[in-house]
Design a binder for these strands. Structure first.
Lengths: 134, 134
DNA sequence: TCTCCTTGCGATAATGATTTCCAATAGTAA
DNA sequence: TTACTATTGGAAATCATTATCGCAAGGAGA
């Protein structure tokens, strides 16, 4: 099957790259709709799937209900707020675990990442306000 | 609120511990149903939520659509088959990244895990058969 | 024991995210 | 132009999960 770079597809890719964040399909839909008011949410889903199959973007299978997509193709690590579900990149420098020393149970490794969970500064602030009220 | 250890709750906990795998709610439902044919899927969901709130089990927020649950409470690492969605534990020994040396962006850290993705031995075998046919 | 109150149950409806279906449209190649 | 195929928008369907509801069960206290 031959891929066509349609306007919709191009716009989706462009907006994802522009944001530099880990957007969900409907967040991206809201952004793209500003330029293409008639685009369908199904088109966004469809193209995110196609683009990640074609390795032009990356699908993050982390964190709860919604999938998130990333225009950064390199493996990198994430920190994830358990409260507001924000995901941010984590720079751990050269401290990564050397997998060659680990028993990987016969798997053919395709990727790796460190997922750290926690409460982000914003939610911490929110929580301390709440607790003060009580 | 006072927790009662009902038969259903006990059975769910027992089956999860017995399996030593990372089961989804409906997989667990199928197992428990063998002993309690009248149990409701809602009860399984409800109790998995309650048990993980009570820190008696752990909810894994990884891998695709379904949540998975684990009776192992300690933080540990996983390897995940991108093809059949199997999850297994990964023992990386003492080679873990020391987070105190990492900029965690002001997050209050609650957990961490290394996620390695790959193709499991079974799927590799399946794939080589397929390719041979072609 | 009887009564009140709370917790938990099973069945089912509702929800939210994602996927599929389908008829219409738009690129592409001869 | 014509024929073919990929892609679209919109709506319906699906899948996992959660909420609701009426009822049963398990104390606690009179």
């Amino acid at each position: 099957m031959q891929l066509r770079m349609t306007n919709q597809r191009e716009m989706i890719l462009r907006e994802l790259k522009k944001s530099k964040k880990h957007l969900s399909a409907d967040e991206l839909y809201e952004r793209v709709k500003k330029f293409m008011p008639r685009i369908s949410l199904a088109t966004v889903y469809r193209n995110l799937e196609i683009l990640s199959d074609a390795s032009m973007i990356r699908k993050l299978e982390i964190s709860g209900r919604q999938k998130r997509f990333d225009s950064e193709l390199e493996d990198h690590d994430h920190i994830y707020c358990v409260q507001c579900h924000r995901i941010e990149n984590l720079d751990i420098g050269d401290k990564e675990v050397n997998l060659t020393e680990v028993d990987t149970r016969g798997y053919a490794i395709t990727g790796r990442r460190l997922e750290v969970t926690g409460v982000c500064p914003k939610c911490q602030k929110k929580n301390s306000k709440k607790n003060a009220k009580k």
